[in-house]
Amino acid sequence: MTDTEKLPVQPKRKGLTRRQKRSLSRGIQYAVFVAAVIAFAVSADWGRLRNQFAQVDIAERMFPDVITLALKNTVLFTVTGFAVGLALGMVIALMRLSSVGPYRWLAGIYIEIFRGLPALLIFIFIGVAVPLAFPGTEIIGGTYGKVALALGLVAAAYMAETIRAGIQAVPKGQMEAARSLGFSPARAMVSVIIPQAFRIILPPLTNELVLLFKDSSLVLFLGVTLGERELSKYGRDLASQTANSTPILVAGLCYLLITIPLGFVVRRMEAKAQEAVK
């Protein structure tokens, strides 16, 4: 006997190796997926679907209004709501981080309430309760002001938590360095901490913008004039006029026209932020 024959032999495997098992399981997953897609494609009644959702002449009639009016209003509602939410969210985040107890509690209560309520209820509240409580007062900007306020109130709760996390993610040494140079706490926050925090939270804030974009459809609960209709309302109105759902599909595509590029931008920014950390 030579030395090599005495070496411990690998135990003999029964059946498949781990690698073989893995590729077999992967193969089964693919097969199930393809089978499901085929079953769906065969069983759906495409003729009726096309009739109901893809009437080209109805779709053509929607242009250019769906862009110049509906999409424009959706973007307008979203951007103003985002602006209100950002300003209010910043104030609440700073209150949440304050050393003054009552400020912290107030901010905490605000966040819990507005994060816990469906956006729909906030819209109804703004539309019904505010005019009842303050008769004779008008929210500036009419419907546009109401939407900005309602969307902003909801967004502020989420954004406040995001901004707070961003501020806390800035290393403690930054505040210490600023204070030791003679910055007051407020000035250090504005000049040194918040600019760095915003770099960190840009991706989640953009996500919030996408969420708001979709929530802007809730404006229909405020009651809008023809000129104030946004994508969802516009699509639904046209759908009932024509007794056909094609406008819904077109409105949906218009949402994706904005949200998909925004999603790309967020991923790009996240990758860039990742690179900066390295």
């Binding site: 290393p171 360095a177 760095q196 770099r199």
Partner: peptide, 9 residues
């Protein structure tokens, strides 16, 4: 400071 604490932005 030990960790410099320059403003990175």
């Amino acid at each position: 400071f030990q960790q410099f604490n320059l403003f990175p932005h």
